[in-house]
Design a protein around this nucleic acid. Sequence first.
DNA 1: GACCGAATTGTTAACGCTAACAAGCGGTAA
DNA 2: TTACCGCTTGTTAGCGTTAACAATTCGGTC
Lengths: 340, 340
Amino acid sequence: MTDVARVAGVSHQTVSRVLSDHPNVSAKTRAAVTQVIEQLGYRRNSAARALATRRTHTLGVIAVNTTLHGPASTVAGVQEAARDRGYLTSAVTLRTATQTALAEAMQHLAGWGVEGIVAVTPQRAAVRALAALEAPCPVVTVEGGHTLDLPGVSLDQSLGARMITEHLLASGHATVWHVAGPPDWLESEARTQGWEDALRDAGAEVPPVLRGDWSPLSGYQAGQQLAGRFRTSRGRGTGLTAVFVANDQMALGVLRALREAGLHTPEDVAVAGFDDIPEAEFFPPPLTTIRQDFASIGRDSIGLLLDHIEGRTDESTHLVVAPELIVRASTARRIAPPGT
Amino acid sequence: MTDVARVAGVSHQTVSRVLSDHPNVSAKTRAAVTQVIEQLGYRRNSAARALATRRTHTLGVIAVNTTLHGPASTVAGVQEAARDRGYLTSAVTLRTATQTALAEAMQHLAGWGVEGIVAVTPQRAAVRALAALEAPCPVVTVEGGHTLDLPGVSLDQSLGARMITEHLLASGHATVWHVAGPPDWLESEARTQGWEDALRDAGAEVPPVLRGDWSPLSGYQAGQQLAGRFRTSRGRGTGLTAVFVANDQMALGVLRALREAGLHTPEDVAVAGFDDIPEAEFFPPPLTTIRQDFASIGRDSIGLLLDHIEGRTDESTHLVVAPELIVRASTARRIAPPGT
DNA sequence: GACCGAATTGTTAACGCTAACAAGCGGTAA
DNA sequence: TTACCGCTTGTTAGCGTTAACAATTCGGTC
């Protein structure tokens, strides 16, 4: 900066003013300085800037297992939104969301002076650990539920599950079975809750819940159990004709298991998933599912975080993003519903 | 730090020495200072540290379209490796790899004083743009090929394609058809090259190449064309009995198109993919594919980058990571190969 | 022509840390 | 005893920027 000042024949402070778009700089000086900056390829040192302003303009992102479609898309959405708002993001990826791992990640980010953290923590244990930790800066959770008083953004998982379930009931199924995700995951619990609520509201019987771990393999195993139930439950109130699987990957496994058992989808058993991964449209058959708007989730979480950082609010607001139902062949109508 | 020094009754420099593990500090002082640090919850300011040492210990990651399985896993691998080596990573995700977008991302990172950049640039245009840009710090490419003299790491795409093709030929197919990825992608080109080389080496005829854009939909469209070819090419040298699809997502589309056309996999047409996405094992039928070791790629790229940063080398070495063939039902043997 | 206020520019002192050197303090060898 | 060494600790001066204030310039007014 001193170099630029010398070449342009002004003080370094004037250069600083030009760079910060300060109003009180004459057009002539501004032009001259700008030209010298260009010519010398000068760029200001963010570390020094951070030191002087006590602002780093950096946000941290903590996420678990970012190779899955959901987390990967969420993180991408968050990063994009942060960049649009002029912040650098630094992502730390954890393999497991233990309290120590989370604490370490936070130290790591805090050491770099991040002004806020977006934590993508869909597991109950992770949110609890997060709430227990005393953060060195504002923290916003994504998919962290709203039970603890941390500000956050989530997709309305429960509504999504309800939409799917009601869609299946409306298609003529007496009830809907459910393959849930792992018990510790908030997303999993909310989806199960939405499914159950929808069944109760409709006066349908609530069949026992099967569980998977989000992986296609676990879906496959659940599917094999379902195939067995198909025979034994026939004609009863909980007769197996429709299944809501808690994510698309498991649904793929379920579809394979049903197919191997000689059952047809959707004729014998209708199947629906959740997430709308890019592959879902090409499953055998194309899968009815719920789409999440990851860009919105990213924008909202960054907006919320900046509200806290810039002191516009200190409440722990919880924003909810609406899901979208995508109907495909895997849940084609069984009988004409009333009124059509 | 001044506070810590005052409470511990030493100079701030001694505190600094304790934090930097300087050898010449007495055990007693060290213990006292450590305790005060703990007690006050002090953490040193990285911006000031960066300013004084002229080192930021931050690496940048530039990637395109990180919601796909490949890039997402690569970025995760790179970040993990960087963290293990004590560096903070800052990821910038681009939607498209235009020269301007790349330049902007670099400016963004350079402004934060990153000491090196890992660029995940599988498109030819992106690498070319990268090579044209004068970087403010060492840059290592991942999947950027080795045509331009940038140091980099890649999976041996061409070898993977060769392994797949040879596996199919060994399974009794006279030749192997190919659905390629978009022409500008190096991965796509290397896979096509490996396939073609394997066919030529085996003296098999080289059928015309079909193209997709990595998406399941494009695979589906290619699959429809293939189904048409199945009838017309029957009995000829280029008879369609096996297809190598350049990635698993497209392979899913191909499988669906073939199924809809009444063709059976692998009895009528064997299909193989590339990437080994988690879903591949549950495709109808389970897909033969190539697995990439993303953790190795991450480790190698960070290792290479640090070699450059820390001045251990300035050659543009290009490391290659070996692929792994995963054989599944989609390519079950057609006839017993010689010798079994 | 002196004086005022606004606009523009310059000067100085932080920001929190590390590097380089200086100082103190025992112990050892001449 | 004196000189010198090694270990430990303290002092000072930056690193490159911005904030706060001081100084200068300029156009207009009385």
